[in-house]
Design a binder for these strands. Sequence first.
DNA 1: AGTTATAAATGAACCGATTCATTAGCTCCA
DNA 2: TGGAGCTAATGAATCGGTTCATTTATAACT
Lengths: 344, 344
Amino acid sequence: MASHARRSQTVKVRDVAREAGVAIGTVSRVLNDHPTVTRELRERVERAMAHLGYEVDVTAQSMRAGRSRLVACAIRDFDIPRFALFIKEAEAVLREAGYTLLLASTTNRPDVEIALLSAFRRRRVDGVMMTLTDEQHRDVREALSEAPMPVLLIDRDRIEALDRVTADHRQGARLATGHLLGLGHRRIAVLVGDTKAFPSRSRLEGLREAYAAAGVVPDPRLLRDNVLSSEEAYRATASLMSLADPPTALFVAAMDMLGGCLRALRTMGIAVGDGISVVAGSDSDLAELHTPPITAIAWDLAAMGRHAATMLLERMRGEEIERGRGLTVPTELIIRGSTRPVAN
Amino acid sequence: MASHARRSQTVKVRDVAREAGVAIGTVSRVLNDHPTVTRELRERVERAMAHLGYEVDVTAQSMRAGRSRLVACAIRDFDIPRFALFIKEAEAVLREAGYTLLLASTTNRPDVEIALLSAFRRRRVDGVMMTLTDEQHRDVREALSEAPMPVLLIDRDRIEALDRVTADHRQGARLATGHLLGLGHRRIAVLVGDTKAFPSRSRLEGLREAYAAAGVVPDPRLLRDNVLSSEEAYRATASLMSLADPPTALFVAAMDMLGGCLRALRTMGIAVGDGISVVAGSDSDLAELHTPPITAIAWDLAAMGRHAATMLLERMRGEEIERGRGLTVPTELIIRGSTRPVAN
DNA sequence: AGTTATAAATGAACCGATTCATTAGCTCCA
DNA sequence: TGGAGCTAATGAATCGGTTCATTTATAACT
């Protein structure tokens, strides 16, 4: 059967060197595209490699060279709609540059984030892109500052001199809130996610700015924060709509809670558009194809992924670039049928 | 600045050994829970490790031990709705067992699949779970048979003696088709994905079985296969609905094409339920919350991910288990408002 | 021709763990 | 008391590459 014998007679640089009649170091230089190797010798070595079916052992390379050609990405959860676009594009850019993507989920727990950073260090990961549950968490910040490899923050606040890519959630929330206020809504319910993290905080800022600009004072009882899952969104929506004086509009200001809200509205027999105006904090097939289609904040997650990977690669190359660069992708409001002028 | 110095004074087994006053080999045995080490010494070594802040270098471990504690997962595309559930659960199981997940997308190209297998080999990846674009592809099959580590197929046909986890797409398609036929539909349009791969083939089988059971002969012009993206689904739907004798039902028999179909129907002003009955090949928020809600085939992707990881772990442990195990998760049909008796 | 400068190739040492043949230390018993 | 039988600890060799000080070959110049 010989099931999974590995050790046995795999071809090594030594064998290639012997076959090509050159020194081991020369084979290595060919592998690494060193300039000081003549074309003739390079070809002879390459022929020997092809002939013997040589495959370089990345582990051994990492061992000596100190770099693993691994880049890690750690986010709260994989199944956030459209976030896959970020990962997909980042992976493509990284693969193009010869790196492999390592994926992990933090499940929104700082201790897991710390453990992951340590695991990445032990693996000699060359670069990390990640979200954080709580930018202020002391131990996480300490772990970040002790990380021997560059770390890029995904949609998080500035920390020390780390690079970051973000979406302009403040702008998005301001547009969305302004739109609802413009339609005459005054009782606007808002669901936001974890306020310990940048996106929710920015959205709240945008919200306040829009209120201030309109000279309207929001009702704090209509704000539900730290809503983290579709299930919690369901419960929050149900409780909001059961208030004696229920909201006329609902702003679902997070990436993955729209389903829960719509389910609650449906259960309660409240019609989107007619009974309540709804804005989604991120666009999706669901928002677009709902009846009526749902007004949503949109931004280019694929571009974010590309930029994140590109910036991280630059940093990993150790180029002389200023530290703590930030890149923000703009957000826009796509107005659809779910938002209408307030009744009467 | 000392930006990312790594080399400098990291703690090694050597240092721990000196600090604890033991041999290097003893430190290694403590690290690996070897039974032949006294409690007293173990504690002394552990104290030294804690004191020095020692972290084992996984690369060096892989170098010598031959295993990397990496498991790779390669699928067509990350942004298939709900597929994230598979990955999420698999990663959780693997992490629990001390493995790290490596992620890559094949973009549905056999040459990429072959390149990935080679990359995994070079990294000494301990196990692989993947889909295949074309189970019959000669070079891919050769690459699979030459893989030195166990490979588990995700939702693919039996190949050699590889383990596999699948969903019972045949059953799902049979239920869906039977349901439509039972409602009186005779002109049922079907969109399936890549027929070179197991899921589409099984769905077509289930389809044929349902037709045969009902004694009905399908119109081959209503079948569109190798529809791979939302955009192609849009075009296929538009073309089908433009036929002189358009279908009365549409079975979207794939994981990620529902959005495209619904977009086409909306553009053409065709009402789901009234104008055409629709069945989705996989369930989603979109299917559930659409108006009307869309009848869908559902199965437990999270369970699939768990099983895949568990089976692969067993195989990696080299346990004496029969080769070529297969696990199939059942599918069910969730009947909703989008499927109605055929008009007149 | 002789000297120097330059370019190309060599191969031993090294990266940081694990492994295993060997040694040290004990216990037990004739 | 001495030897057999064990268990626990030791540390040199090893994994498969890369690196760099050194050697060798070639070109350039006086």
